[in-house]
Design a protein around this nucleic acid. Structure first.
Lengths: 260, 260
DNA sequence: CCCACTGTTACTATAATAGTAACTATGTTA
DNA sequence: TAACATAGTTACTATTATAGTAACAGTGGG
């Protein structure tokens, strides 16, 4: 929990958002004590926050078990916020169009510090299903991650490398900094990155970075995901390298416009 | 803004959520004064709240123009919350499966007071595109709305009827309570409702209510949406009436389980 | 250049929150 | 059944955060 001893900082709001943010896909039900423990807020204050969220409809409380879960208001709130994210609406039609033409799964992510955040994803009906993370720190194991790393500035890259070796997710996952560095060097030159079953077995991906042309900074990345049953790395590159860099370029223009 | 003079109620949290909720699809950029005015919070307090949200990354502020918009953290937060809504994950596979079989656009909504909230929507690729509302009070003009009305209890129905005649959205929209009452009476008997271009010209829909079997209360509704270019009301009913009521029944079981 | 407006900061009375502690409810173990 | 453990709720204040006023700064338009 970030804190700031500023007069113009509403601590109660920070805590309330922390509480609400504890409810996610893997934790749709929580108890008061659990929330108190996880958020590091004392029981009475937690009770006040939770009670507020219940009264406002963001949480609902089971009358018997007292178990808490998200309420309908939270669903609306979440939807509203996601829809209110301007860049999403700028990016969506471009991705949908390429998806329509190629019938391929396309993923777009934004970089926030050392984390990749899901922006918009359009799935081909045939893609093998896996749970897409909303936020990921496994940049070393994803096509989008390597695309971002290939354009990151030196200091940020060093921060990232500091925690090497990286989490081994599949047998193919790169866990040595030297190998990763060689790859992203190559990716920088050719303009796209490859994921060879490094994140999920059976899935290969080709990614390209999203740039803010004005600042020269990397803003995120996109990737096309395909099953190994239908593609090899070579056919993936020959089929999609042009498309993915073109799309990344188009989206980069939107990102640049949006951030200025 | 709901308020409560309770000791166990965090007003600052309420206000902060109100501020964040002001950012939606049609209002992705806002100014401090605007927020202050809309939320009914004085300028300094608004400044504190906004500043907090900026520091936490939920909002980002343009350094020059001072314009505010949602930040990456808000996108993640919104996604996390939506994904944290348990019922969504229970309902999704059922809807996806019927979508796969029928290649039809399926919409599911939950009723919250007098409002329909979007739960999950799966679009057929061919559907004519329109902007799906996240929250709607136009129950009289939608298949889901009429499905819900057909199972609402008397007092809630009267509350709803109190604001008749209803907003005319297309030439076909029903704006007389008597006509609407006759229709929902029929819908109650046959188990499904029809929308004959009453919400959008060129779009006809068939809906069915979601029930909590344990409490006997209506919890929401689903609908299949189809273009008039491919279907008539008659062919819509003969093709989908069985499917939609079956799916509604299956989802109702989940709703019942979920709410107990 | 002035005006009107938005955003920022200083200041303090007032109101809200944190934290302790006691109490209740519920379920578990001996 | 009693004792115990745990989770949730409430009462009570010292402390501290916030609301609101007012003054100031920055910006763009006329």
């Amino acid at each position: 929990m970030v804190s700031d001893p500023n007069v113009y900082f509403a601590k109660t709001l920070e805590k309330g958002l922390t509480v609400l943010g504890l409810f996610d896909k893997d934790h749709s039900r929580r108890t008061l004590s659990e929330i108190s423990r996880l958020a590091g807020i004392n029981k009475t204050s937690t009770y006040r926050l939770v009670n507020t969220l219940v009264l406002l409809g963001y949480l609902s409380k089971n009358a018997r078990s007292k178990a808490l879960r998200l309420g309908p208001k939270a669903l609306l709130f979440g939807h509203t916020i996601v829809q209110g994210y301007e860049l999403l609406h700028m990016v969506k039609p471009l991705i949908d169009e390429v998806h329509r033409l190629c019938n391929v799964t396309i993923d777009s992510t934004l970089v926030d510090g050392q984390t990749l955040l899901a922006l918009y994803r359009r799935e081909a009906s045939s893609t093998l299903f896996f749970r897409q993370p909303l936020a990921s720190e496994d940049l070393h194991a994803r096509a989008t991650g390597k695309a971002v790393l290939s354009r990151m500035d030196q200091s940020d890259l060093e921060t990232f490398l500091a925690k090497a070796p990286f989490k081994k997710i599949t047998p193919n996952t790169i866990d040595q900094a030297s190998v990763l560095l060689r790859q992203i060097e190559e990716d920088r030159n050719r303009g796209y990155s490859i994921n060879n079953e490094e994140y999920l077995q059976g899935l290969i991906c080709i990614g390209a970075p999203l740039m803010n042309f004005q600042t020269g900074k990397v803003a995120g990345a996109i990737s096309f995901d395909l099953p190994t049953t239908e593609y090899t790395i070579e056919s993936l590159i020959s089929t999609y390298a042009g498309q993915v860099t073109k799309l990344a370029n188009d989206i980069s223009e939107l990102v640049t416009m949006n951030e200025s």
